[in-house]
């Protein structure tokens, strides 16, 4: 069982090309006590992975250089990261996007705009539904 207080123990990698969105998510997670690293696109994120070894990755879908779909695929191809929870963030709120994202192998989906007041509680609640994520984050402690 993960609680919101656990966020303080997380190392989170935020991959987002929009500077404001990056700052917002960083501020929010750091406010809750998490250690945050940022990358502006998929390639930069992949380069950071082994050095930072995040507990959780927050990944924007539409990005230059390497988008979220490709980045997720590459992350899953690396043995030690095939279980790391990856959360999609996207401003695409059209019908069918949610299904497509979960089908691709993301563990959760945050749609922009999100509410800083509730987004992390909702995230924790959703992650608790997935035993492999709970086990993964529990083992990291």
């Amino acid at each position: 069982m993960i609680t919101a207080a656990d966020i303080a123990k997380w190392k989170v990698l935020i991959v987002e090309d929009d500077a404001d969105a990056r700052f917002l998510m960083t501020y929010l997670l750091e406010f809750k006590g998490a250690v945050v690293h940022v990358a502006e696109h998929g390639e930069e994120a992949l380069a950071l992975l082994e050095e930072f070894f995040p507990d959780l990755i927050i990944l924007d879908i539409a990005m230059p250089v390497m988008d979220g779909w490709e980045t997720l695929k590459r992350i899953r191809e690396i043995n030690i990261f095939d279980q790391v929870p990856v959360i999609a963030v996207t401003a695409h709120a059209m019908k069918g996007d949610r299904e497509r994202i979960l089908e691709a192998g993301f563990d959760y989906y945050i749609s922009k705009p999100f509410s800083p007041a509730t987004v992390l509680d909702e995230l924790v609640q959703a992650l608790n539904q997935q035993t492999h994520v709970v086990a993964y984050l529990g083992a990291k402690r």
Binding site: D20, L24, Y27, S115
Partner: peptide, 20 residues
């Protein structure tokens, strides 16, 4: 679809920071 995406991106920052 494009407009939806383009409008939501700045709104995310406005809504997010004002809420914080």
């Amino acid at each position: 679809s494009t407009m939806s995406h383009e409008l939501r991106t700045p709104l995310n920052a406005i809504l997010g920071f004002s809420e914080i």
